[in-house]
Write a protein that binds this DNA or RNA. Sequence first.
RNA 1: GCCGGGGUAGCUCAGUGGCAGAGCAACCGCCUUGUAAGCGGUAGGUCGUGGGUUCAAUCCCCACCCUCGGCUCCA
Length: 661
Amino acid sequence: MPSNSSVIKVRLPDESVRELPAGSTGIDLAQSIGKRLAQAAVATVVNGVETDLGVALADGAQVSIVTADSDAGRHVLRHSTAHVLAQAVVQLFEGAKFSIGPAIEDGFYYDFELPNNKTFSDADLVAITERMQQIVAADQPFVRSEMSADDALKVFSDQPYKCEIIQRVTKGDADSVDALEAGSADAVSVYRNSDSFVDLCRGPHVPSTSRLGHFALMKVAGAYWRGNEKGPMLQRIYGTAWESKSALAEHLHRLEEAEKRDHRRLAVEMDLLSFPQELGGGLAVWHPKGGIVRKLMEDYSRERHQNGGYKFVFTPHLANSHLFETSGHLQFYKDGMYPPMEMDNGTYYPKPMNCPMHCLIYRDRQRSYRELPLRLFELGTVYRYERAGTLHGLLRIRGFTQDDSHIFCTEEQMADEIASLLDFVLSVLRRFGFSDFDFKLSTRNPDKSVGSDEIWQKSTDALREALNRHGLQFTVAPGDAAFYGPKIDIDVRDAIGRKWQLSTIQCDFNLPERFGLEYIATDNSRKRPIMLHRALFGSIERFFGVLLEHYGGAFPTWLAPVQVRVLAVASAHEEYAAKVVQQLVEDGYRVDQLVADEQLGKRIRASKLERIPYVLVVGDDDVANSTVGVNPRGGDVRRDVPMNEFLQQLSADVGETRSVA
RNA sequence: GCCGGGGUAGCUCAGUGGCAGAGCAACCGCCUUGUAAGCGGUAGGUCGUGGGUUCAAUCCCCACCCUCGGCUCCA
């Protein structure tokens, strides 16, 4: 049905059709639907392509409006705010070069090069913010135009980074970042805000700068141009931007809350562990309270492994360099190892991983197929010389203990073994309060791998099948595998939604080869076993750090360093309090008592700050009736609770993993 | 490793080219307390380490160590 030339029809997401005068834009469409929508609109999606609001709509187009409070809308806001940042910097810093400025999660950044290797200071950020607000107030339009690469090179003649992007796009070797910046080779797109500021960009953008304004510049950081460590280092400014003042405020509040549960801060506050400067970077000592929690974690892990058919092994912290030559680690990862110790009978290295030693245990005698799968388990402490700038509390540390398992099995056993491993791993993680998992299957990188296509295929299929068998959603990361085989990585989401990579299950056919591992098969032939690497916590240290942040220091009762604290109202009740303590200790709980030489309120406050799960208060009534006052963490106070009733409550609490506080 | 910010009492932080400061915690005393900070007092420091400049350095300069935010890396 041919439409009237003065009218166009567009289809909306709900399949309804709207008629508009020819030449109407996304703005017109939004206005025709509603005033509020027009106010919230930042872009359109036309036939599946994100487009500026101001572009005339074609007859018959499928159109949806992108609003500022959607993920896509915030992305547009953030990208547009990055342009405003670039304009402000170029205006305030004579000779500044700007390179790329994408939207990222929660915000945006822009990379700059200042003349004479100058860097931005915090004071500069204040000035830049003010200038950005002026640009917002000036209501500058974002005007799109397309031009040839030659013309674009002229426009950006004084901007070497922009020229480099244009040239790469022209030559056809643009990566995804370049493409975002410049559009395509035949039509380089640019957005102009004013006579003096134009930026290379694919878009889309908000119609004008007045749509922005709820942003904050967060920090300055160095960043390599194109991520190349050998290339120039630029100055990156990070910012955050939102659709409203309140959304921005909420985000800043979330950051504050996250900072309060930073494991490094909690470790100090709660006297769990420390990083003495005298030890050297990235090396921790565990204090008694942290030690209790760690021991409980390890005990639980050992118990589960015991029940899971694992054999416990122990291996030394040092090994002769021959071992790591055989394994190939010295060849691939020497830079990440602590330096060698030259001894009169050879060269020794602190071990950066346990697998080669477990291979030696396997190889020590002839193995039969009847022994397989052979599951070796060790809490093995390893040392890796992580680069100085990468250390981060417990999450990136130089000396750590892996809950490391190596499973030797036949090719036929591999799929079942991986499937049951997944069950095992998830079951243990759930006990620690995690319930939200993301799975990633990392596949072969042909340029950085060893082994035959066939075995790679088999291993990858086995991992994939295990995930499918459990009905688990997973993403595939092509080329992210280790050099020796594919792997499944398991991320958990913590109480405030952040993702942490913890467990990993890896197939390895390289080390069995290198160590010449064999077993005698049913037909009396010698065969090579498959080796599965599996770390569940990853490292005890890292897992502990993640747990600390997950619970915000409020460990579930079964893990809490002190589970119950007993407070006498006054000195006269101290004797009864001590009896309560004694009974709880006899029942196997971790209990202490704070004597009444301070006000009760003050002692309760101190106990709450220590995040003790139960504070018991005992006074005259309790002495008379054998009761306690129960003040639970995160709950309401109950008076006159019979001791037996409290014991039942405590027992039930410790028996199950409590939800996070 | 690279760019930038830091390191002062147990903790959080202020401060100055000329005798080192606060709050909390600790310790002592008074108070004997019924559910998140009672009152008074005492003690506590090689101002990260080593050099240099200076009549004098915690402060200025250099190097190193540690740490924080990023980048790169992460078997």
